[in-house]
Computed example of a mutant assay.
Amino acid sequence: MALFFSPLTSALLFLTLSLALYCSIDPFHHCAISDFPNFIAHEVVSPRPDQVPWERDSQNSLQGSKILFQDQVQGPESVAFDPLGRGPYTGVADGRVLFWNGENWTNFAYTSSNRTEICDPKPSALSYLRNEHICGRPLGLRFDKRTGDLYIADAYMGLLKVGPEGGLATPLVTEAEGVPLGFTNDLDIDDDGTVYFTDSSISYQRRNFLQLVFSGDNTGRVLKYDPIAKKAAVLVSDVQFPNGVSISKDGSFFVFCEGDIGSLRRYWLKGEKAGTSDVFAMLPGHPDNVRTNKDGEFWVALHCRRNYYSYIMARNPKLRMFILRLPITARIHYMFQIGMKPHGLVVKYSPEGKLVKVLEDSEGKVVRSVSEVEEKDGKLWLGSVLMNFVAVYDL
């Protein structure tokens, strides 16, 4: 028996089949994963947004931040001060570490010796993505208070160190247990010189960070560098986008950010639980760096708050694969991921893991994105891998 469809049904069927064929072939390479033939979407087990209650900052306090160094720095993710209190120092998108001497920015250090014209100034931090693996991309910065040496987590060059006078940084480690570092992200230094750091993925480099976010890749690692043995060892493996890391004030543990899940995880260094980890806090958003203040509290920078779109995509990898194959750019997918608009958000936790402070710019008017929060002398210094300035908020 022949089947007959109405003109409308026939048109809808034709459009559906055409869309399915287009997405399977992607002839114009418009989809977000067209250049990643081995892309796999992993499930991310994260709580629903309503399961992580938190008190909103109705005053949008971060809108009162001062904008410093507009267009003088591109993508200043990490902000650090040396043992003498000088600075700030920050790593920027063209591969340099800059130092503010009180009057202007000066070149302090480099992570790559390949300083050619491809590393010259560009209009935005994202403009450097294509050549980051050549010019270097310094992310986490920490000073060793004993020696004045600056330790650098470079996304491509691994873990490096440079002396108090600056210059070309010396690589310390580029692999751990036979596996190369793929996306070195952040670090902290213990009192004995041991360095704890994160490798966000061994599958995706930082220049493909959007695909890393979309995939839920679980090849991230948390590592320890022994300065005496001059080797790195893996402490925690199979982590979905590990990012910031910071040691507690008493040195009994450190916390690290699980970016995809949206949590702070605690790794015990001392006591009966030494060598084990547990959840320190579930965050109201997806984190970047974390920093410990003088009181032992933890400031966490969040790229965006939780939303139901990212939750549904996280829990349904097959649906996510289908959506990612549509002719939609990676940037648009990312906008959906963050709730369609920039949202500056930082939170503070007590040494016991209790949420004690929330600061927002929910409209993204002044502070559109935050990668790190460094507290110094009653001020919060806010860096961002995406912004072209440093924001300062008076506590």
Rank of each mutant, 00 (worst) to 15 (best):
Ala80Ser: 11
Val195Gln: 03
Val255Asp: 07
Ile152Glu: 02
Glu43Gly: 08
Ser215Asn: 10
Pro180Thr: 11
Asp149Arg: 14
Leu17Glu: 05
Thr276Asp: 00
Gln70Ser: 15
Leu141Asp: 03
Thr147Gly: 06
Tyr309Trp: 15
Asp295Met: 13
Leu187Ala: 00
Asp144Ala: 00
Gly296Ile: 11
Ala391Val: 07
Asp71Tyr: 12
Gly353Ile: 08
Ser310Trp: 12
Lys122Cys: 03
Gly91Pro: 08
Ser61Phe: 00
Ser124Gln: 09
Tyr393Val: 02
Ser201Met: 07
Phe280Trp: 08
Phe253Thr: 04
Ser384Pro: 11
Trp268Ser: 03
Thr111Phe: 01
Val52Ser: 01
Ile261His: 09
Asp26Ala: 04
Gln63His: 06
Ile134Pro: 00
Gly178Val: 08
Ala20Asp: 04
Ser246Gly: 05
Met321His: 10
Gly102Met: 05
Gly75Met: 11
Glu175Cys: 02
Leu386Glu: 15
Leu283Ala: 05
Gly378Val: 14
Ile228Glu: 04
Gly64Asn: 08
Arg306Thr: 02
Asp394Ile: 08
Pro242Asp: 00
Val392Met: 14
Pro27Arg: 13
Glu165Arg: 05
Cys119Ser: 05
Asp250His: 03
Tyr151Cys: 03
Leu172Ser: 14
Asp190Asn: 10
Tyr349Asp: 11
Tyr204Phe: 15
Phe108Val: 15
His343Ser: 05
Val44Thr: 13
Gly244Cys: 08
Gly91Phe: 12
Val234Phe: 06
Gly344Glu: 09
Leu345Lys: 04
Thr174Ala: 07
Tyr308Lys: 14
Leu382Cys: 07
Thr116Leu: 10
Gly140Tyr: 01
Lys318Gly: 01
Gly271Asn: 03
Asp144Val: 04
Tyr349Phe: 14
Lys122His: 03
Ser18Ile: 13
Ser310Asp: 00
Leu264Gln: 00
Leu150Val: 04
Glu258Gln: 13
Pro171Phe: 02
Val373Phe: 03
Gly140Glu: 05
Val222Cys: 05
Pro27Lys: 12
